[in-house]
């Protein structure tokens, strides 16, 4: 349902090489053990060395999949300290998928990305203030809530 949609194809192939494994086939047992697979759909973002940089389980319809996978690619860039690439993707998520479940994560890490790029910037607290305003019921609001303590 999700993968045949052209915008989903574009989202995946513009950032990643797609590889797929059927967990019912014995020939895949080795790679599934290597990845500590437990549930499907099981989606990972790996770097070229095979290091896992992002993961999630469970079905997502196309818009939610696109937002979630973009957050994955952004997080992968961020963990490699490729701040400009990460920032561009987080901004894209917030522009095109502002109501997606992944959007609060994008806003939380947009602040982190800009702070890591420039620790003298006030972008961390600025974006987290946006997060409190735009997504007050999200888990990511809780993750920054220590900043709300008196």
């Amino acid at each position: 349902m999700t993968y045949p949609q052209p915008p989903v194809v574009e989202t995946i192939t513009s950032h990643a090489i797609p590889v797929q494994f059927d967990n019912s086939k014995t020939e895949n047992a080795g790679v599934l053990a290597q990845l500590h697979h437990i549930w499907t759909p099981d989606v990972r973002v790996l770097d070229e060395g095979g290091t896992e940089l992002y993961r999630w389980d469970g079905f997502l319809p196309p818009p939610e999949f696109m937002a979630r996978s973009l957050c994955g690619f952004a997080q992968a860039h961020l963990r490699r300290r490729e701040f400009e690439a990460a920032e561009a993707i987080y901004v894209d998520v917030l522009t095109r998928f502002s109501t997606a479940y992944a959007a609060p994560e994008a806003l939380y890490y947009l602040g982190v990305t800009r702070y890591r790029r420039d620790p003298n910037s006030d972008e961390l607290l600025a974006q987290w203030a946006n997060l409190r305003s735009r997504y007050p019921m999200s888990e990511y609001r809780v993750k920054q809530s220590f900043k709300e303590l008196p």
Partner: peptide, 30 residues
């Protein structure tokens, strides 16, 4: 259509060559 690869090592090599990540999808046909 997504042209899924079936070999993780080959996908990693392509990712290196094309400066991309690898997206792994593990599914159950049932």
């Amino acid at each position: 259509m997504i042209e899924w690869m079936g070999d993780l090592e080959a996908a990693r090599k392509r990712a290196r060559d094309e400066s991309k990540f690898v997206l792994v999808d593990i599914f159950n046909p049932g």
